[in-house]
């Protein structure tokens, strides 16, 4: 039995029929074709599917689709400006090798954004905690942390 839900997705109102059994990532990837959100494990252990719901970073592979009713969802596709200008976090990842294979990157950027939206001047520990649910096999996290620090500095200005 499908049900209609209404929520805000990347600053636009979306009205869509969903199967209540779906997870948020299923709606995003398979129905709305927003495939920037990745499924690295499907059980909430790797963080590749991280999106922001009402300001909080969540694993969209675990998030029941019915719970987004009336909420605000941001995915990686909505992070850059509509004209394509990169968000400072994205720009920093490109400049500072925060991205290698790129598979964890969407989730990593969403976790970083959720953190910086709440706290403009996080410590390194806070950054590391903020992305601790996002596994990366390529970088050893060093240049990811540096990228987020660089973005935070630029965003303050």
């Amino acid at each position: 039995m499908k049900k209609e839900i209404t929520f805000t997705l990347n600053n636009e109102e979306v009205i869509v029929e969903v199967d209540p059994k779906w997870t948020l990532i299923h709606l995003l990837r398979e129905v709305l074709e927003l495939t920037g959100t990745k499924e690295g494990c499907g059980v909430g252990e790797c963080g590749a599917c991280t999106v922001i719901v009402d300001g909080e970073a969540v694993n969209s592979c675990l998030y029941p689709v019915m719970e987004v009713e009336g909420k605000t969802v941001a995915t990686i596709e909505g992070v850059a400006l509509p004209d394509g200008t990169l968000h400072p976090i994205q720009q920093a990842f490109i400049e500072n090798n925060g991205v290698q294979c790129g598979y964890c990157t969407s989730g990593m950027i969403m976790s970083a954004k959720a953190l910086l939206d709440k706290k403009s001047d996080p410590t390194e520990d806070e950054i590391r905690t903020g992305i601790s649910g996002n596994i990366c096999r390529c970088t050893g996290y060093v240049q990811i942390v540096e990228s987020i620090q660089l973005a935070a500095e630029r965003m303050k200005k």
């Binding site: 927003l34 495939t35 920037g36 959100t37 990745k38 499924e39 995915t75 990686i76 596709e77 992070v79 850059a80 990169l86 994205q90 990842f93 490109i94 400049e95 090798n97 991205v99 790129g102 598979y103 990157t105 969407s106 950027i109």
Partner: peptide, 19 residues
Amino acid sequence: NVPRTAEIDKVTGHAVYID
């Protein structure tokens, strides 16, 4: 330290993996 601009799609969610 040339930036990885050639791979910009990886930070915007537009890169096409096998998925």
